[in-house]
Design a protein around this nucleic acid. Structure first.
Length: 309
RNA sequence: GGGGGGAUACCAGAGUGGCCAAAUGGGACAGACUGUAAAUCUGUUGUCUUACGACUUCGGAGGUUCGAAUCCUCCUCCCCCCA
C-alpha cells in the first residue's frame, strides 16, 4: 500500500501521458548497483546523441573512484559525463543541491538536445529531479550535532516525544522507529519554528520536459554473482589503498559508503580482511535490493532484463 | 580394538519432559523512504490459510509418559582421544 497515494498517482501521470506541450524528453536510466548501467548507458547515449547526466550520490565525489565503480577514463571520454568526480567529500552536498544543479544543467542542455539521458542508481536524487523536493530551511550543523548527541545520551524515545509534541501530524505518519527520520523531522521543526509537516508538502512539481523511465535488471542470482565478482575486482584494483587514503574523512557522510566503512573496520583491527570483503559483498547485495524496491515505485517504467547479455 | 562427544529449520547454533513450530545470529525474501540516501529503518522466513486456526517437524525405527527435540532401547552417520 503506497503511503502517499496522491504522489504516486501523479508520478504515473508523468509517465503515461505524453504532454504535447513538452517537446523535450528526459530519459532516466536506472538500475541496481552492478547490473551494468555504465556500459549500457554509453551505447544508449551514443544512439541518442546525448551526454550522460549522472545521478549517483557517490560517483559525484572526486576522491571516490574504485569503491564507487566510477566509469573508466575511456568510458568517460566516449561520451561527455556530468556530475562525475565533480565534488569533494569535504564539501556538503545533498539532494536539494543536486535538484538545483541538475535542473540548471538540463535547462542548458535542452537548448541543444531534444532528448537527454540521465543515468544513476540514487533513487532519491532521481525523485528530486523528476518530481522535485520541497524547500526546507537550512539546518544549522550545530543543531544537528546537538540532537545527535541527545539521541545517543537519552535514546530515541526522548526525540520521539518532542517530535510528537511539535508535530503530531508528522509523528503519526513517520516511521517513528527510524532514528534518522525522527531526528531530521525534529531538527527541521526546531530550525524552522513550525511543524515539518507544513514544510514538506510532498506534491510533485511540474517539469517542462517529459520523463521516460527505464529500469535495468537481471535475474537475481546473476546480479548477485556480478556484485560479488566486482567486489573482488575492486580489491585487486586497490580498494584497500583507496580506503586507507580516506581514513581522515571517515566521519563524513560521503564515506558512510559500502566498500569503505567495512575496510575502515578492518583497518581498525576489528575484523579480518576476508570478513570485510564478505561484508562489502553482502552490503552491496542488500543495497541493490533496496534500489530495486525503490525503482518499483515508478510504475510506468520500462523494465529491461539484461540477464545473459 | 578401547573410551568419549555429537546429529535441531537454508546455514551456524540454543534448547535437555509441558510456557517449543522451536531462542539467537547469518543468509534469503519482501517492504518503507523528501536533505551528505551506497544512508536509515521495518516485516517475513516448516506446510496450508486473508485470518482465527489446522497439520507435519528436531538423524532413523521402536518404547516410557496424560504429554518427548528433551528420558530409554536398537540402528545409521560424523567428530575427538587412547591403541
Amino acid at each position: 500500500m503506497p503511503r502517499r497515494p496522491e504522489a504516486t498517482i501523479d508520478k504515473q501521470k508523468t509517465v503515461f501521458f505524453t504532454d504535447l506541450a513538452k517537446p523535450k524528453t528526459l530519459v532516466v536510466l536506472m538500475g541496481p548497483t552492478g547490473v551494468g548501467k555504465t556500459d549500457y548507458s554509453i551505447s544508449l547515449a551514443q544512439q541518442m546523441g546525448s551526454p550522460i547526466i549522472s545521478c549517483d550520490s557517490r560517483q559525484i565525489y572526486k576522491e571516490l573512484n574504485i569503491g564507487v565503480a566510477r566509469p573508466t577514463p575511456e568510458q568517460l571520454n566516449a561520451v561527455p559525463h556530468h556530475f562525475i568526480a565533480t565534488h569533494s567529500v569535504r564539501d556538503y552536498y545533498s539532494v536539494g543541491k543536486y535538484e538545483r544543479d541538475a535542473l540548471a544543467l538540463l535547462d542548458d542542455l535542452f537548448t541543444q538536445h531534444d532528448t537527454l539521458l540521465m543515468v544513476g542508481g540514487s533513487g532519491l536524487y532521481i525523485d528530486a529531479v523528476c518530481f522535485g523536493i520541497d524547500d526546507v530551511p537550512e539546518v544549522d550543523a550545530s543543531l544537528r550535532e546537538r540532537l545527535t548527541q541527545r539521541l545517543k545520551a537519552e535514546g530515541l524515545e526522548s526525540l520521539q516525544r518532542e517530535l510528537q509534541a511539535l508535530d503530531p501530524d508528522f509523528y503519526g505518519a513517520v516511521d517513528v522507529k527510524n532514528p534518522a527520520r525522527v531526528l531530521r523531522a525534529l531538527e527541521v521543526c526546531l530550525a524552522a519554528g513550525k511543524p515539518f509537516s507544513q514544510i514538506r508538502r510532498n506534491s510533485p512539481k511540474n517539469r517542462n520536459f517529459d520523463i521516460r523511465f527505464i529500469v535495468l535488471n537481471r535475474d537475481r542470482a546473476e546480479l548477485y554473482n556480478r556484485i560479488n565478482l566486482r567486489v573482488d575486482q575492486m580489491m585487486e584494483q586497490g580498494l584497500l589503498e583507496e580506503a586507507k587514503s580516506m581514513l581522515p574523512y571517515r566521519h563524513l557522510n560521503a564515506l558512510k559508503t559500502v566498500g569503505y566503512r567495512e575496510l575502515f573496520d578492518y583497518l581498525d583491527g576489528n575484523r579480518t580482511l576476508d570478513e570485510a570483503v564478505e561484508l562489502i559483498k553482502r552490503n552491496s547485495r542488500r543495497y541493490a535490493k533496496r534500489q530495486l524496491t525503490w525503482f518499483g515505485r515508478y510504475e510506468g517504467a520500462e523494465w529491461r532484463n539484461l540477464s545473459g547479455k
